[in-house]
């Protein structure tokens, strides 16, 4: 499924340079925005502040500058990821970056041709900054806490996706060897970050 979609998409788009700067990515229109905002009502003491839908991610340390799309769970209860190597997926059933809890963004480490948007994610170090710009053009900065790689099937899903008191954002990508017969990389990399206050 994933592969087919990717191929179809490639025929429509010609963007191929992944880690290129703003000029190339800023031209890409984010098409799928199946969002329903719940945050319209005035809030007095809400559990989380106004946090909008994330639209763009910048990671200066590794020259990432990419659009963010909202994705859901598929029928197998798996997180849908972009069908291309340029976009980053935000797990929309979870939290928005900046709100209390674990927001989750996922991007490919490589596509069929070579490096993709999160290829250099493993080079991040604690203290590096990640900027998320939301639908209201508000930019929030997150700071890397730690990087962890987990063998496939052994990642602590609740720690990555589950309830959390702080305002966290976790970036996911693949790492380790690509196992062609399994059609996936053998490890998953999680970059844990916290909102800069």
């Amino acid at each position: 499924m994933l592969i087919l979609a990717s191929v179809d998409n490639e025929s429509a788009e010609t963007v191929s340079s992944v880690s290129s700067e703003a000029e190339s990515t800023s031209g890409i229109q984010v098409e799928k925005v199946p969002l329903t905002s719940q945050d319209e009502e005035p809030e007095e003491e809400s559990l989380s502040p106004e946090a909008g839908t994330p639209k763009h991610i910048r990671i200066p340390a590794i020259k990432v500058n990419a659009p963010v799309i909202a994705t859901d769970l598929d029928e197998n209860n798996e997180m849908i990821v972009p069908d291309n190597g340029e976009e980053v997926a935000w797990f929309e059933p979870g939290r928005e970056p900046g709100s209390q809890g674990n927001a989750v963004l996922a991007g490919h480490v490589d596509d069929y041709n070579g490096p993709a948007v999160f290829f250099d994610l493993e080079k991040l170090q604690p203290g590096d900054e990640i900027e998320i710009t939301d639908e209201n053009d508000v930019t929030m900065t997150f700071v890397v806490d730690k990087l962890e790689a987990y063998p496939l099937g052994e990642a602590p899903l609740r720690e990555v996706f589950g309830p959390e008191d702080d305002r966290k954002m976790n970036l996911l990508t693949c790492t380790g060897l690509y196992n062609a017969s399994a059609g996936t990389h053998e490890e998953r990399l999680v970059v844990y970050t916290t909102l800069q206050q």
Binding site: N77, R95, L172, T173, L177
Partner: peptide, 26 residues
């Protein structure tokens, strides 16, 4: 207390293998 938030059944598949030079292993 937050008992549960939405989560997938496993980690997403975030790579397609194109940056791996070791095509032989495949």
């Amino acid at each position: 207390l937050t008992d549960y938030t939405a989560m997938p059944s496993e980690m997403p598949q975030t790579g397609m293998g194109g940056a791996q030079s070791g095509m032989n292993t495949m």
